[in-house]
Design a protein around this nucleic acid. Structure first.
Lengths: 256, 256
DNA sequence: CAAAATCGTTTCATTATACGAAACACTGTT
DNA sequence: AACAGTGTTTCGTATAATGAAACGATTTTG
């Protein structure tokens, strides 16, 4: 933990810690429930929630529980970071998803993790579904392997210093040397696979998106259940994803 | 203004007032600049911004100005309100935009205004571009006319009590009786037009989206410049938009 | 190239306000 | 009827937010 010496506003921090609680796969929370989860006093929690409700940041649903409000939707849509990448990727991702019939993601590296910037979901019932704006470990995802593989050697060694390669499944690469070897292969082949390394039954394939200076600015992946994702599909999948990546690259300026 | 007697947390309110400032079509702000705009002391503003930066709610860009941060992107994507409508409308909206080559919007009524839930932009250079999550007056937009026209008479009269019909252009309907007549016609024809009533040179056409109980739950509009938007197109546009509306309606449950 | 203007940042004394235990009102359950 | 679960209000206390002034660092101006 960094030493944060600036005198920060503790109420504001608490308010956002309350909102962060909604990241735990739970859409509605009561006052006492949130207080217990965050460790805050229930009176404090009540007052913060009242304030956030007044600001439209949260609102009560039919069960009188608090849910995230439309102010966050409004502000979230105003965020300019990666905006062009997010908007220009929309149609290409949809095209890939339509053709392959699996879920497609666009991601970038941020603080040693993969940040999901956009997605297009599989039309099928059994599908991968990720939250846009959420984060995932890089070393056990196809997106992350691409983004790491095309990072500088310094960045990669920093990554290995910062991140513990925890086994998510029996297939997860948990050894630094193995990961370096894998990244080398990924960079050579210009595509990455995740063979049930994050989650059993989940297979992904990813390729890089380049800017006009040939730097990797993002990665596109296709994810599906192992039951549908066969080795013989890889070649055809790759050509479809590459077509989508090219569509994005045409819109991208040098730096972004 | 309502009398808000609960003791709300003033720091949290200030923090979100700072964030609200970004709604004014300006992506980056300095400390003194934000302080001046909001009327807060510059030291207070500085400390609040430091706190928000610590929380990843804002971040500094290359010019050392503050921009909205990825925490807002993350939380905004977590908002569950109208989520199914937003996700299921994505592909139908894209299809309409692709076919008509104009920008398409999906909106609902909220606090007497139109809330834009989703959009698909025209592929052309000259196009309408609206912020998702933002609000617009209902009486001078095609979306708003549809949503008002299919509201109850009570809701409509409440609307007329609350809202002042300000002239946005020389074509804007500024008279309650005229608006009521217009809404009656809209409901009969089951589509609404905005003939440069919000902005000169901007024409829109909208239709309702029904749930399985035949209630209007949203509206779809197509917007384009008057130079391209010809009366003879209306019939063909309507059939294309209706096709999209049907695609959405198939996915929608009874109430949402 | 010096002077002035502007920027973000820190200091410190003061005052406002966030705080929390306890009591409360309300609801649904046992 | 008793109980356990909500969200909400009260009130005295202590903490934390406040802002004028000074600061150092850039950038702009003459």
């Amino acid at each position: 933990m960094e030493d944060v010496n600036k005198d920060l506003n503790l109420s504001v921090i608490k308010a956002f810690r309350l909102l962060d609680t909604y990241l735990n796969d739970k859409q509605e929370w009561g006052v006492r429930e949130l207080a217990k989860k965050t460790g805050y006093n229930k009176t404090t929690t009540y007052r913060l929630l009242s304030t956030l409700e007044y600001l439209d940041v949260v609102q009560k649903n039919d069960n009188d529980k608090y849910i995230l409000g439309l102010k966050l939707f409004e502000l979230g849509n105003l965020v300019s970071i990666h905006k062009s990448l997010r908007s220009y990727s929309r149609i290409p991702l949809e095209n890939i998803a339509k053709e392959i019939k699996e879920t497609v993601h666009l991601g970038v590296l941020r603080n040693d993790q993969v940040l999901y910037l956009n997605k297009a979901e599989s039309p099928l019932g059994l599908k991968v579904s990720t939250q846009i704006g959420s984060y995932q470990e890089a070393y056990c995802t196809a997106l992350g392997k691409i983004l790491l593989a095309f990072s500088s050697t310094n960045q990669i060694s920093d990554y290995l210093k910062n991140v513990k390669l925890k086994a998510r499944t029996s297939n997860t690469i948990t050894n630094s040397e193995d990961l370096l070897l894998e990244l080398k292969k990924v960079k050579e082949k210009v595509y990455a696979l995740d063979m049930e390394e994050l989650e059993l039954g989940l297979i992904c394939i990813a390729i890089p998106v380049f800017n006009k200076k040939k730097e990797v600015i993002a990665s596109i992946s296709v994810s599906g259940p192992s039951s549908r994702f066969k080795p013989e599909n890889i070649t055809s999948y790759l050509s479809i994803i590459k077509k989508g990546a090219l569509e994005i690259e045409e819109h991208i300026s040098d730096y972004n």
